[in-house]
Amino acid sequence: MWDSLHLLAFSPPGWGGVLLKGLFVTVFVALGAYGVGLLIGFAGAVGKIHGGPVLRTILEIYTTLIRAVPELVLILLLFYSGQSLINSIMDGLGSGRVDINPIAAGIGVLGFVQGAYTTEVIRAAMLAVPKGQVEAAFAYGMSRGKMLWRIMVPSMIPFAIPGLANLWLIVTKDTALLAVVGSSELATVTRQAAGSTRNYLLFFIAAAVLYLMLSLVSTYLIRKLERRYRPVSRTSKLNAQTAGGR
């Protein structure tokens, strides 16, 4: 293995540059999926707390099903169904079929999966905010939107951070699953590099090191963030079990 280290050189025939580019795509996809997940999660949490019975039931089904099915199965299912959905819409509009950008598809699929977990984290955080604060906001004549934005969001952040941080670490690792549908993120390019050079051990170790670095840097930044938004009370343990994924 050691005499083949030159394969990690940055310029061809070395694969180092390719791997780094894959890492970049991985971070990009993870950020995108995390963002999509946050949007879905916030809307889902508001819907679960304030919505009517129909909306609440739909959201309950969404979070339960997504969290019960393996991510790998979900990715395949959403990938193909999303693709044919978009294509049938395009057909309906009269324009031709489109090839969906695999990076955008990855962001969409992982974001949809993340949304289910994020919904639960944000919902728990919202429920942890003392009721009196919400009532006080309404008593001041704030509308529901204003209450959410001015009172709920700032005061739930300390409760949500541990769970959301956990979800970030999970989504960075879940991007590797996109290798089954073919993408350009780190796991996919690593498999290509390993396959074409027959140096499996070297390249998978290199990829593991890159993923580990991403996790360690993330953990360091999360710690700093947590220190900044230290929860006021000690009830923030409630998020510990809502997150999953390997």
Partner: peptide, 23 residues
Amino acid sequence: CTVIRGTPLLIQLWLIYYGLGSV
């Protein structure tokens, strides 16, 4: 624990199967 939790299981699996398996 840090290494296992900090890397994707898919990479660990491939590292062990293809990597160790080729050695």
